[in-house]
Design a protein around this nucleic acid. Structure first.
Length: 603
RNA sequence: GGCGACGUAGCUCAGCGGUAAGAGCGAUUCACUCAUAAUGAAUAGGUCAUAGGUUCAAAUCCUAUCGUCGCCA
């Protein structure tokens, strides 16, 4: 039965390049999951986009003295190119500064207001006369009211570590204009009344306890039990989605409130782009659809609590008219498989100290599947993990290349050279031949189950164990030996191993899409296992934007056993993976913590 | 300060109450030569952070301590 699977992926702030933590936390898991379900024949909608708003972008813009729009457009463009290169197969990767996102976000705001889930409250905030605006906490410094440290930040003191309230700082001053003494002014803001959803949220968590990751459930329950307080959803800034009310022109929706809506707004945009504006409802209002949120652990409360509350509050939105799903409730996430963090050489990622591995940089030097393989094999699914360069070297050379790449290379070139460039014909198969084929065919179920449970590291390990069994089989059957005096038997073994490789290519395809495609071609098949990841431009009324899209038309891949035909012409194989030199470890380490030049990304 | 997670072979990790603690990589030895010296087999390697406790039975549950990290104040 065809299922509708929605893959929602965390939205990166467009204030810097993607680093391996992004891949490990959300994008690669989501991509593997989406590719698998597409091979299964399920209807997948995988969406995400750049978070165009938010203070980090304004901070970066101020630092460089350029408008916020320039920063987000620059990094949005780089996100598109980077993810295309590493093969993250979004149906739509858009951004939050589209007319569509603004409109849907404003509609959501108004609906929540109408239904009584928002309330107004007056806040005390620091105001700058020079800049004529209220200052976000990150723009404020002053003396810590707990320890007396003179250079405490608006939100936290670096000396005593306490979180601070900016308005309580002694002699608060603006970062941009340190000579100005800031004053406290009152400002009116809207708040999301989360407490109204407490019981509903707890019940929702309860009902998913069995299939969710333990840490996600516990963390969320804890968060709710500590008491949900209202959270401000508007701010006195000029970069963001305008508040759609008379007299509120100076204010914007708070980014945390508006960005998570992207899962819904991007689905709506996708439907619009495909020419069937209601198509998104097959996921969002279909009771049989499953929605998965792929995020990092820092995002857990926003997805298991705030976004859920927003969804509960807007149930029925855009679903009043007659249609297939009229009367159905909006779909809450079926699972939120949050990953933990990936550290770098034992230390935590830090943008400011450049303790980071930037994805566009490593893609200049390494194959996308090599990067994918290493990161998947160290996915932080149960706790924080570590990216180390000698780990990368070892995993790529000793596992990916030695076991899988070499298996493909040794047998495809053997078949190509010794069997006239064709899949050998055989009379009958031996017991050992049938055994290995059966063993590997079981892998479709084993690996598939693990992927469905989002245990992706284990899924890859299980697939690699099958690769090792295939190598063992060859050691027993030795076609390079039997071909000398029993070519019939060599033909049986070579046919068998090609069929095994054909199966393994499919099982590995969600993880290693680029090399699986190569194997597919070496085996003599035409067509693509997966569709194409494209960059498209979309026009709206007043502006246009670029986005990643997925064209499934050319895809022929299916999560099915090989039915390789004897006599099928092979193509001359080349090595799948480049062997890495031990020198790379020291070289790559030397980039950590050193100043970085941002290079243009070559597609 | 409160809450929570984690600490298992040289490395990366699995196991989370029940046969004598597992995998991959690395190491050693042997076999093989189709292959990017890749592959296969065998062997070595652990007082499961420390100290108490519960239990017929604990890496697995409880308490404390030490260390690492996260969230909240």
């Amino acid at each position: 039965m065809t299922k509708h699977i929605h893959v929602s992926v965390a939205w990166p702030y467009a204030n810097g390049d993607l680093h391996v933590g992004h891949l490990a936390g959300a994008y690669l898991p989501a991509d593997i999951f989406a590719r698998y379900h597409r091979l299964k024949g399920n209807r997948v909608l995988m969406v995400s986009g750049s978070d165009s708003h938010g203070t980090p972008i304004s901070v970066e813009a101020d630092k460089r003295g350029v408008p916020a729009r320039e920063i987000f457009e620059h990094y949005h463009e780089r996100f598109l190119l980077t993810q295309q290169k590493i093969g993250i197969s979004y149906d739509l990767f858009t951004h939050t500064d589209t007319e569509n996102h603004h409109k849907v976000a404003q509609d959501i705001f108004l609906l929540l207001l109408e239904r009584g889930y928002l309330y107004k409250e007056t806040q005390q905030l620091l105001y700058s006369e020079i800049e004529k605006r209220f200052l976000p906490d990150r723009y404020v410094e002053g003396e810590c009211y707990i320890c007396g440290y003179p250079d405490a930040r608006g939100d936290q003191c670096d000396n005593c570590g306490n979180l601070l309230e900016a308005t309580k700082l002694i002699n608060p001053r603006s970062k941009n204009h340190p000579e100005e003494h800031l004053i406290v002014r009152e400002a009116e803001h809207y708040f999301l009344d989360l407490a109204q959803f407490s019981d509903q949220l707890l019940a929702y968590l309860e009902s998913h306890q069995a299939n969710w990751r333990q840490n996600v459930v516990r963390f969320s329950q804890n968060f709710i039990q500590e008491g949900l307080r209202g959270r401000p959803i508007t701010r006195d800034i000029d970069w963001g989605v305008p508040v759609p009310l008379e007299g509120w022109d100076e204010k914007r929706l708070y980014v945390w409130f508006e960005a998570v809506m992207g899962y819904l707004t991007a689905s709506i945009e996708w439907a619009h782009n495909t020419g069937d504006p209601d198509a998104w409802k097959a996921w969002w209002y279909n009771p049989d659809a499953e929605v998965y949120n792929f995020i990092g652990k820092d995002n857990i409360p926003f997805h298991t609590i705030i976004w859920q509350a927003e969804l509960m509050g807007i149930d029925g939105i855009y679903n009043q008219q007659e249609g297939n799903y009229n009367g159905c409730h909006i779909q809450l996430p079926y699972n939120v498989p949050a990953n933990e963090f990936m550290n770098i050489e034992g230390k935590q990622f830090s943008k400011s100290r450049n303790w980071a591995i930037w994805v566009p940089d490593i893609l200049e030097r390494y194959q996308p599947d090599a990067v994918r393989y290493y990161i998947i094999s160290t996915f932080p699914e149960t706790h924080d993990s570590d990216f180390s360069w000698d780990g990368f070297l070892n995993r790529v050379n000793n596992e990916l290349l030695a076991a899988w790449g070499n298996l493909v290379n040794r047998m495809l070139s053997f078949a190509y050279k010794r069997f006239d460039g064709k899949v050998p014909a055989y009379d009958a198969l031996t017991y050992a031949d049938v055994q290995i084929i059966n063993r590997v065919e079981l892998g479709f179920g084993e690996v598939g189950n693990l992927i469905e449970q989002v245990r992706l590291r284990e899924a890859l390990q299980t697939a690699m164990a099958l690769v090792r069994e295939a190598n063992y089989y060859l050691d027993v059957r030795k076609p390079w030996h039997t071909i000398k005096d029993d070519p019939e038997d060599a033909a049986r073994a070579v046919y068998t191993i090609l069929k095994v490789i054909d199966n393994l290519k499919t099982i590995l395809a969600p993880f290693l899409p680029f090399s699986s495609q190569q194997v597919h071609e070496y085996l003599g098949y035409n067509g693509q296992i997966f569709g194409d990841i494209q960059i498209e431009e979309f026009e709206e009324t007043t502006r246009s934007h670029k986005a990643l899209t997925y064209d499934s038309a050319p895809a022929v891949g299916l999560w099915l056993k090989s039915s390789l035909l004897p006599g099928q012409p092979l193509r001359e194989p080349k090595a799948l993976y480049q062997k890495l030199e031990p020198e790379i470890v020291e070289r790559e380490r030397s980039f950590l913590g050193a100043p970085r030049d941002e290079h243009a990304i070559v597609p």
